[in-house]
Computed example of a mutant assay.
Amino acid sequence: MTLHKPTVLITGATGQIGGDTLRNLLADETITLVAAVRSPAKAKPFEDQGIRTVILDFDKEETLAPALQGIDRALLVTGYTVDMLRQSKAFLDQAKKSGVQHMVHLGACGRDDTTIAHWAWHQFVERYIEWSGFSFTHLRPECFMQNLLSYDGTQAVKAGVIEQYTGDTPFSWVDGEDVARVAAQALLNPAKHAGQTYRLGYDVQSYGDIADIMTRVLGQPFSYNPQSPDVFLENMRAAGAEMAYMTCVHDNFTRMAARQIPGADETFDNFTEITGRQPVRWEDFVQKHRSAFAY
């Protein structure tokens, strides 16, 4: 009798966390990997590498059932819009009907009692996953270090100047690649990681601290020029972002700058146990992305 090889679906496969999770799982022979993409054009690069793809568009519910057929485990990654609530529910309802066993959900930061709106939306999704009866692993990353490379297409560091919106408040950070490493482990070993909510944040720095680290690591002067969160809102509007979601981020930045978010500077010691390696710290991240920051 041949053992069933579990099939693992990666949503957001063309994005950062989904793509990194996929790359972390590529060499693993114990699973069959499937990348969810929105169009045949987006499928081609995966198929060129011999990775199976399915067409899945969260806004086209008719794509969900065919995409989820035969899937045992899934990574759920939604976009930065309020539609994530409707999309997640439709996806999870169909996943339940299709017999998906284990759900790994990419959520947002925060304690259970958070009132930052988009963090709370993700916690509603977490509860819905639990209520639906899946085996689950919830991922709650703190602020992504990658936000300093770009946020929704807008550049954060220009010619040695960081322009951001949280005053001089220090808070917790994680490298998106580390989040993907945890996601990969949860998908490979669901029994081991079932029922867990992993908060992922390993380095506490303010933007001023980060500018100092960049100066030291790159040997060029970097500085931080704090901006009003209102500037962020206008930038996002100009970039065509979804404003219901970005208004929540604006509130997040406003409260962060006023040091009104309890636990924003918490770090966690779960990473080495989950992945067998050390988490990336700001020095490592700056070194790794030096070509993006140097000027």
Rank of each mutant, 00 (worst) to 15 (best):
K192C: 13
A117H: 02
A90F: 05
H250M: 05
M84C: 15
Q278E: 13
L26A: 08
A183M: 13
T81I: 00
T267E: 06
N252I: 07
D209V: 03
F144P: 05
G276Q: 04
D209Y: 01
Y207G: 09
C143D: 10
Q69L: 13
L200I: 08
A95G: 11
V182H: 05
L85T: 12
F293V: 10
A41L: 09
E177I: 08
D72F: 03
Q196P: 13
A13Y: 02
T169R: 02
W131R: 15
D203M: 10
E62R: 05
T267A: 12
R290G: 03
Y224Q: 10
D168M: 09
R259V: 11
D230S: 14
Q278N: 13
K44G: 10
D265P: 01
Y128T: 01
Q69V: 09
Q49G: 02
P170E: 01
W119V: 10
T63H: 05
E61I: 14
G70S: 09
Y165W: 09
V204K: 01
H138W: 13
I71K: 11
N252V: 08
Q69Y: 06
F171I: 05
Q101L: 13
P6Y: 04
M256S: 04
G107V: 07
T272W: 03
Q287V: 04
L139R: 00
D269Y: 06
R38F: 01
A292F: 12
L148R: 04
C109N: 05
D28S: 11
P262S: 13
L200E: 04
E273W: 11
Q16A: 14
G263Y: 00
L139G: 01
A90V: 07
T21L: 10
V104W: 04
N270W: 00
V8N: 08
Q260F: 00
E126M: 12
Q123Y: 03
A294H: 09
M84R: 10
V286M: 14
T166Q: 10
I10N: 00
G153L: 15
S172N: 07
S150D: 14
F285T: 08
